[in-house]
Each structure stands twice: as structure tokens, then as C-alpha cells.
């Protein structure tokens, strides 16, 4: 160790001597001071970091902006039932197409062949614009409400009834009747507790035991 240190100091001295000899005479006094200078690392930031920190302008509306534009509060009396009737007609045409009712000649029974296919396509279909009626519910005041569904969220249906009032009904504890031209389909709202966009990718079990609710 000691020999190594010696050689180190010797070589350092040699370098200093060489610098003193090669530098102009006026600078000789400054050589040692210059060698002891500290170099601070990291005070100056590189250009790349600056570019990364720049905020990207978002393409979509943020939640706050949406709220400011009034996308969330559809007030109680802002819509008219008559305006939504054409939407319901459009929906029933669409539903007939999706469920292939004309080809099946009616809704299949639960023991027949087409039942599995029918429930699957029913589950994947869209409910915006459907005519719904609450048959059973934990809350008795919801029972008997009938209207056109305008919004379908994860846990609720928003529907507009004939007297132009928008009501929100929880799916979890209700049973609904769905009117499709001349057909009536009854389903448990509990099974549809999925976001409408995700519903089309999820798989439904072919048979479910209805709970007492």
C-alpha cells in the first residue's frame, strides 16, 4: 500500500512540474490553485429532462371539464317523453335484428336449443331506448314504474316515464319487464350489473339460480 501511495504522489508531483514548465510564466502561480478546484456535478440539468417534463395536451375531456359542460347532471324535467319515442322504435328494430326473432319464430323456451344463444345475445345487446317496467323491487315505491331507458350505468338504469320525469332505478334489487313489440321479457337486474361497454366481452353463465331478493 505504502509503495503505491508513494508512486501516486510522485507521479502527481511529476505532472504538476510538467505543467509548471509548460505553462506561460504569468500563470505558474495559479497552477496549484486550479488543480484544487471542485467540480459540482448535477447543477446544470440536461436538455432531455426538460423535454420530458413538458405536459402533454390531453385529447380527451377530463372529468372536471365534463362536469363543467354539464354532462353529468341530466335534470329531472329536462327531457320529453315524445322526443324519445322514435328512439324506442329504432331500438325495437335493432333488437329484432340482434335476437333474430323472425328466424326463430318467437322467443325460445328455456329447455330448447336456441335458449343458450338467445340469452347470450340478449346479454350483449344494448338497452338504451328500451321500454322497461319494474315488476319487483326491494323498495316498493319503484314497483310499477314504466319508461324508456336513456342511460345504463353499472348499477342503475335511468329512465324517463310518460309524465316527463327522469328516475334512477338501481338494478341490484329489482326485476324488470322489457317490452319488445309484441313480446315481453322478464329479467333480473342483478345479472346486468356490469358496465354497458364491458358487457359485450364478458361471458354469462348459461344457467343461474335466482336468489330470493
Amino acid at each position: 500500500m505504502s509503495t503505491e501511495e508513494k508512486t501516486n504522489t510522485e507521479s502527481a508531483q511529476a505532472i504538476i512540474n510538467f505543467l509548471k514548465s509548460s505553462v506561460p510564466k504569468s500563470e505558474v502561480a495559479n497552477v496549484e490553485a486550479e488543480l484544487k478546484k471542485d467540480f459540482v456535478l448535477g447543477i446544470k440539468k440536461s436538455k432531455n429532462l426538460k423535454q420530458k417534463a413538458r405536459k402533454k395536451k390531453s385529447k380527451n375531456l377530463t372529468r372536471r371539464e365534463k362536469k363543467a359542460l354539464g354532462f353529468y347532471n341530466i335534470s329531472r324535467n329536462s327531457m320529453k317523453y315524445e322526443d324519445l319515442l322514435p328512439m324506442h322504435l329504432m331500438w325495437s328494430d335493432y333488437m329484432f335484428n340482434v335476437l333474430d326473432i323472425e328466424k326463430l319464430s318467437g322467443i325460445p323456451e328455456c329447455y330448447s336449443k336456441g335458449w343458450d344463444n338467445f340469452t347470450q345475445s340478449f346479454y350483449r345487446a344494448d338497452f338504451h331506448g328500451s321500454m322497461l317496467e319494474v315488476v319487483r323491487s326491494k323498495c316498493p315505491s319503484y314497483v310499477g314504474k314504466k319508461g324508456i331507458c336513456i342511460m345504463d350505468t353499472r348499477y342503475t338504469f335511468k329512465m324517463i316515464s310518460k309524465d316527463n320525469v327522469i328516475t334512477t332505478i338501481p338494478k341490484q334489487s329489482s326485476v324488470f319487464d322489457l317490452y319488445l313489440k309484441t313480446f315481453k321479457v322478464t329479467f333480473f337486474g342483478k345479472l346486468l350489473c356490469v358496465r354497458p361497454a364491458e358487457r359485450s366481452t364478458k361471458k354469462l353463465k348459461s344457467y343461474l339460480y335466482p336468489d330470493l331478493n
Binding site: P86, M87, M90, W91, Y94, N97, V98, S121, R124, A125, D126, H128, G129, S200
Partner: peptide, 17 residues
């Protein structure tokens, strides 16, 4: 196919709305 039909229907409704 069912998703395409759904998109088609939703587009019509969106346009009407």
C-alpha cells in the same frame, strides 16, 4: 358482429339525440 350492430345503433341514437 353483435358489437358492430350495437355501434351502428348507438351512432343512430347519438345522431338523433
Amino acid at each position: 358482429n353483435d358489437s358492430f350492430q350495437r355501434i351502428n345503433y348507438l351512432h343512430q341514437v347519438s345522431k338523433y339525440m
